[in-house]
């Protein structure tokens, strides 16, 4: 908030992200990046515990089964899905125009390809995990 005769009256930016639902969604999207970070830390701890030996790693696995950990993982999973959604939503805007057969590729097509790739990778990872256990 300031008044400068040469420039004009500057309105304050305080609380700007609450002014429009679009900004609230944007801030939520940015917040889900924290979930990605938290999950990366959880996995990194697992790798460190693995390096410390079998007992340490089993302790980490045990900790993952606690109710608090399960709740955290449910929240993280939901956040990751929201994060992926927002990521694919903005993806067409980050790419140069793509032409296939002389026609411009639609934003929805790019988003679907993104989702398709995410689903394929997820299925492959689960299949690999199941195969490793068997």
């Amino acid at each position: 908030m300031s008044r400068d005769p040469a420039v004009g009256y500057r309105r304050p930016m305080r609380g700007w992200w609450r002014r429009d639902p679009f900004f609230v969604r944007y801030m939520f999207r940015e917040l889900t990046a924290v979930a990605v970070l938290v999950y990366a830390i959880v996995l990194t701890v697992g790798v460190v515990r693995l390096a410390q030996g079998e007992a340490a790693f089993n302790g980490w696995l045990q900790a993952l089964r606690s109710p608090a950990s399960l709740l955290l993982h449910a929240v993280l999973l939901l956040s990751m899905v929201v994060h992926a959604h927002s990521w694919f939503e903005i993806m067409p805007k980050t790419m140069p125009m793509i032409f296939v057969g002389g026609r411009r590729l639609a934003a929805t097509t790019i988003q679907r390809v993104g989702w398709g790739a995410a689903v394929v990778v997820t299925v492959v990872v689960f299949a690999a995990a199941l195969w490793a256990r068997a």
Binding site: D20, F23, E30, K93, T94
Partner: peptide, 9 residues
């Protein structure tokens, strides 16, 4: 730019 995306909207 932090890709808010409201400009295009």
């Amino acid at each position: 730019c932090t890709a808010v995306g409201y400009c295009s909207e």
